[in-house]
């Protein structure tokens, strides 16, 4: 019984491991373009996170106003560059510009909200 179960286990393992060679599906390495785009996207999200953290630091008084402005502006420029790179030279220009505009206006809104809440105080 134990030997039979062990043999079955080995068979299952062999089939699962050998399947990529036997199946009809063709495999290819992840294209560099796709990987790069994923990396750029991750980098862009990291930049957004940094902006969000900066805003939190500023609102709780961890950062001076001038430091906050200069760091945020730098990060915004970086985010815009990353977004442009992500769309790539062949990406539809209108869509790319539109998305860029949306991102910038979203950042402005967020920034205006946080400044507004500070001003109220």
């Amino acid at each position: 019984m134990a030997i039979a179960l062990g043999t079955l286990l080995a068979l299952i393992a062999v089939v699962v491991v050998a399947y990529p060679f036997l199946g009809s599906k063709r495999y290819r390495l992840a294209p560099e373009r796709f990987v790069n785009r994923e990396k750029l996207r991750a980098e862009r999200l990291r930049v957004y996170r940094k902006i969000s953290d900066l805003e939190a630091d500023h609102s709780s008084g961890d950062l001076t106003g001038s430091d906050f402005q200069s760091q945020r502006d730098q990060l915004r420029v970086t985010a815009a560059k990353l977004l442009r790179e992500e769309s790539g030279p062949n990406g539809p220009t209108n869509d790319r510009d539109e998305q860029l505009e949306k991102e910038i206006s979203r950042m402005r809104e967020r920034s205006a909200r946080s400044s507004g809440s500070r001003d109220q105080s």
């Binding site: 299952i12 393992a13 699962v16 491991v17 050998a18 399947y19 990529p20 060679f21 495999y27 290819r28 390495l29």
Partner: peptide
């Protein structure tokens, strides 16, 4: 690529 995928499956197994 097929060998890379197969090696990954071996790790799962």
């Amino acid at each position: 690529p097929a060998l890379i995928v197969s090696a990954r499956r071996a790790l799962y197994m």
